[in-house]
Design a protein around this nucleic acid. Structure first.
Lengths: 241, 241
DNA sequence: GTGCAATGGCTCAGGGCTGATCCTTTGGAG
DNA sequence: CTCCAAAGGATCAGCCCTGAGCCATTGCAC
């Protein structure tokens, strides 16, 4: 019978985890934390954003209000107005929501993360990229490398943005979505541990290797490089949690 | 600005695609089509299922009603009653909803599918499986192999169930969920093309290779075998669509 | 300077969904 | 035979959310 097996849990999982308001808040924060909306940038206009998110303008506005109250965005009225990401983002007002994740939860995230990100790197390398795509990748790579020391939050955003860019150049929208989601979860885990500058330099080295492999169309190398990269993060997280 | 880039589309994608009723119907059908709920089996009681799906009993009942009207399930009252999957399932009353998918949509699904399923096979092989898990895998493998000729729908369900079992033994709930979802999409594509018996035998061969690699803990071999397997399906689909 | 288009701010009727409660049916336990 | 627990069947008040509309503000184009 379809009792409590994992497959049953997967199919009969909740249809709606949060309500529309909460989901919308999460999305806005996700956009900011993944660097998809960078500090100072303008979000799409409310009417458009509401349509894209599939929620009513009322609900979106409530969510924006909440995110604005927390200091992440700021709204300006009038033509050429809009909702802008704050230049100085709040520094992790995350009060360790819930206890540290259980070992199983951690492994769950890390497993999916490895599958998705290594798969994305391989898939990206297997395609023949357009000049625009190649430039996009290179741009994100230098973007991460250029972050000055101490700017940990900015580093994390650009790091996320590079990983997202790799998923983007696979040309698979659903893979990109999946990577964005798992990346959000990984970031939440990373926020709980200190960021060591030696790790950053090592990461940048690995980023370069990964992007080079993708750009040269070497799929196995891209996978291997990404595997090593996410393996490092996994070891770090397992150590601290 | 966060304009129309893929990453932006991923983060600002709709929060709620369908309404609760439609989502619930989809889940019930997914359970049946993936073989998670086999013909003749009883679904969880309404009160429990509603809780698991995170919808009200009213909504769940409406969904069950719809699925029952379509001939997929049957409800019986009284103690030891319940909602049972029909012994004889309707044969694809799917009237080609929408035109055939565009090339990009097809590639999107196939890309994510390859990433997830090959990654799952590799992850499964990399773990040390418990006796119960090993038996589970073997059972699903023989289950597919035993389907008599002509029972195409049953074959597809058991095939799905095997692929799901591989995801299950990775012990990653979110990977299992992701595989279940992509498998549902793949099945929809497969329903549009004829099932050739030569392909079935070839598939069974590949299934055996995959499971053997997983059981012997050979992660690279498991990935390679799954890669080849999903590659075959991909070629088939590209040819027909 | 004036007009105006684009944007955020606000309100309200109504539909969808929930959560609670009670009813009805059924078949095994005693 | 009777009881009753477990399951489906049904109803209703009320909240969440939508969709539509209108208002207020702003700064460029002319």
């Amino acid at each position: 019978m379809p009792g409590r097996l994992p497959a049953s849990a997967a199919v009969f999982r909740p249809v709606r985890t949060r309500n529309a308001f909460e989901e919308t808040v999460e999305r806005l924060l996700q956009a900011i934390r993944l660097g998809v909306a960078a500090p100072g940038e303008r979000l799409p206009a409310e009417r458009e954003l509401a349509a894209r998110l599939g929620v009513s303008r009322v609900t979106l506005r409530e969510a924006i209000r909440a995110v604005a109250d927390a200091g992440y965005v700021e709204s300006r009225r009038g033509r050429y107005g809009g909702t802008f990401v704050a230049e100085d983002l709040p520094s992790l007002p995350r009060p360790r929501r819930g206890a540290t994740p259980t070992g199983a939860e951690l492994e769950d995230v890390l497993t999916l993360r490895r599958v998705l990100e290594s798969g994305a790197a391989e898939s990206a390398a297997a395609r023949s990229l357009s000049p625009a795509e190649r430039q996009h990748l290179r741009g994100r790579l230098t973007g991460v490398a250029e972050v000055p020391r101490g700017e940990e939050a900015e580093y994390r955003r650009r790091d996320s943005r590079l990983h997202l860019a790799i998923a983007e150049v696979t040309a698979s929208a659903s893979l990109t979505t999946a990577v964005a989601d798992i990346r959000t979860k990984v970031n939440e885990l990373l926020d709980a541990i200190p960021l060591i500058s030696a790790n950053i330099e090592h990461s940048n080295e690995q980023h370069r290797t990964i992007v080079e492999a993708i750009l040269s169309g070497d799929a196995p190398a891209a996978r291997a490089a990404m595997d090593e990269h996410v393996g490092g993060t996994a070891a770090l997280l397992r150590g601290f949690l």
